[in-house]
Amino acid sequence: MIRALVLLAGLLAGTAAAEAHALRVFARVEGATVSGYGFFIGGGRPHGAAWTATMEGTPLASGETDADGRFAFAAPAEVTGAVAVTIDTREGHRATSTLAPQRFAAAAPAAARGDGAGAASSPAAAPTTDAASDEAPMEPSPAPAGLSPEAGPSPEALAGMVERAVAHAVAPLEERIVALDARLKFTDILSGLFLILGLAGMGLWALGRRR
């Protein structure tokens, strides 16, 4: 028995086995940072797994997930297409999450309207820090910069602030929606079991008819 197990272990070591089922990636844009994490449906996070971010096929950033399966990188200065984040646990599990270009426009309107290319390319920023201050390095304090001294914030600055505030407020909801989406529902499990039962019944009926 033990010898058999040792043999099996040797076989496994020699043949690089792999299995893949339900890894998911949650990614969001917050200010100038794209952050998120991978998770397995049913529990667990892929820690120490390789992640890569690409925009239209060109690599943006890569690294390894931390102990909570998290990743973060600076959002591209110019968003020319959808940004895809892929997590690969290197044993067969791979999953990708794609952020549409509109997500970047909504999260960093100041950057999108920025003065030309590269205006908003800031180095990696912590997601919890004030995102606005990272978005436009050219202007030390972007929110007051939109204010004209006599007449309150300009409509563009106001719209930017509102969009950022909304993005910040809905971030936990987005996370919750992804989690709900990737949940095993008890009713689905039950319907699966009864579908199998029904198929068996149909098979028996078909066999009985043939006789």
């Binding site: 397995f40 892929p46 646990t89 079991l193």
Partner: peptide, 15 residues
């Protein structure tokens, strides 16, 4: 169907 829905985290992955 039901048994393989129960995934247990092992190391960096889940099985």
């Amino acid at each position: 169907f039901a048994g393989s829905l129960i995934a247990v985290p092992v190391g960096p992955s889940s099985v």
